[in-house]
Design a protein around this nucleic acid. Structure first.
Lengths: 132, 132
DNA sequence: TTGTCTGCAAACGTTTTGCACGACC
DNA sequence: GGTCGTGCAAAACGTTTGCAGACAA
């Protein structure tokens, strides 16, 4: 049985050609693509593919933990007056973002694997104590 | 001299009522607001305020390090097939996002200050070795 | 006075929604 | 036959742009 079929079945998800293609694309392309890139690439071999399906599928796969969503790049910015190095916690229920001060070995890191580091952000997500 | 005037002057930025209001708002509201919230709130006392100014100002303040931009919540999602705990590095020049495997004391953290933790993301930003 | 900042309106890119059709237990 | 998935189109949302007039230094 196909490896991707197995992944979907383990999570109780239905098997569709679109889902298999999207998983396969993400497995073969570890470039952290966005939804539109995936859509454009897969549309070449499957012209009837729609954006909606790509978005739906990515959402489901993320919910089931088969893939991981990142928000590292741009958009829906939040702003913080506290500029000293610290981390943040986002409550998935109430949406509140809280400052978190934890010991982090990388707060002053300037170089990592040859890359020059200018910022470091630690994002914790979960449910806050008020919403638990 | 006003504390916020001083902050702006130190960075060589011009003093405008709008900039002072925006800084003051962020200082008094440590709720990590988004641009539109800031706009809506400040528009109450300054009806002629425009979104453009809010966006421009936040951008400048962030560039000068007076405030800090966060992308923790939604939007322009990227997707990763690697679901094992790891961190990410974003190159500001070429835009590439790379996986980073560093020792992190929080990768298995389930609780922090009474909040239930489900995910942890470490985001490093800077210039990659190819762009340096 | 000069260069920058502001505000308006329009455009843009990404994501979400409503709905009808189709596929699959 | 009922549920779920797909695809289309339109809408929504946050952000960016171009430009003209206003303002800070």
């Amino acid at each position: 049985m196909n490896e991707y079929v197995k992944l979907l079945k383990e999570k109780g998800l239905k098997i569709t050609p679109q889902r298999l293609e999207i998983i396969r694309y993400l497995d073969l392309n570890r470039t952290h693509p966005d939804a539109d890139t995936i859509y454009t690439e897969l549309k070449k071999s499957n012209p009837s593919l729609s954006r909606t399906t790509v978005y739906n599928t990515l959402d489901i796969l993320n919910q089931q933990g088969l893939i991981r969503e990142l928000t590292i790049s741009r958009s829906e910015m939040r702003y913080d007056f506290e500029t000293r190095p610290h981390h943040h916690f986002l409550c998935g229920k109430c949406g509140e973002i809280m400052d978190i001060y934890v010991k982090c070995p990388y707060l002053d890191t300037k170089e990592l694997g040859g890359n020059h580091i200018e910022e470091i952000h630690g994002y914790f997500k979960g449910t806050c104590k008020n919403c638990c």
